[in-house]
């Protein structure tokens, strides 16, 4: 099972618990973290709006989570990274989230949010820029210049004069090919319908 489908299952589970019996404070934090991991920002915002005031303690953990959400919504990525770094995730939630397997091998919940965000930003840089300065990329990815260089070399992106990087388009993984039999079956049902 992929991490995404596990997260979705957990989201659904928590949403149904919320409808039936309501959530504990800790469950609100978990649900918000899952929304952030899955980039369901509208849902995260609605959760913030409907959460009881006791959970929304000023300078509390839930508030910090929502700051991350707001920064990502406003596409203010430096702010988003700063907010993520400022969140000290309670150990019980971090431990709980360890159950969600992570393809990057990291276990802390903060890394889930960061990794997913970085992945999206990296895809956008590859798509939108012909060249980009390492310093700009460092701000955009929330990484140190050394880490950015490492990421670039892993992706086989070439570097040029003045600390410039020349991104290459990241090929999207192809969809699983439809089996010939399935395709013929579908086409025959369409033709049968048209006749």
């Amino acid at each position: 099972m992929t991490s995404s489908s596990e997260s979705h299952a957990r989201i659904q589970e928590l949403e149904s618990i919320e409808l039936q019996d309501g959530l504990y404070d800790e469950q609100y934090l978990r649900l918000m973290a899952l929304y952030l991991i899955e980039n369901q920002l509208c849902d995260a915002r609605m959760l913030w709006l409907r959460a009881p005031d006791e959970v929304k303690v000023a300078e509390g953990f839930f508030q910090k989570q929502f700051n991350v959400c707001q920064a990502i919504m406003a596409r203010n990525y430096p702010e988003a990274y700063a907010s993520i770094a400022g969140v000290n995730w309670p150990s019980e939630i971090a431990l709980d989230m360890q159950a969600v397997s992570c393809e990057y091998g990291e276990t802390m919940i903060v890394e889930f949010v960061k990794v997913n965000l970085k992945k999206r930003r990296l895809a956008l840089i590859a798509k939108a820029y012909a060249s980009i300065a390492i310093s700009d990329m460092s701000i955009s990815l929330g990484l140190s210049p050394e880490s950015v260089r490492e990421v670039c070399s892993n992706l086989k992106w070439t570097t040029g004069p003045g600390d410039l990087v020349y991104p290459k388009k990241i090929k999207e993984p192809p969809c699983a090919a439809i089996r010939g039999n399935t395709l013929v079956d579908h086409l025959s049902s369409v033709i049968q319908f048209l006749e």
Partner: peptide
Amino acid sequence: IEDGDIYATIHPDDGMVEFQTNPENYESM
């Protein structure tokens, strides 16, 4: 670009934006 509204490439060295056509060939799975 992220939302797929336009297809373009930014050249930060000279501050130019190059507009492109939709690269989709409608032949993918």
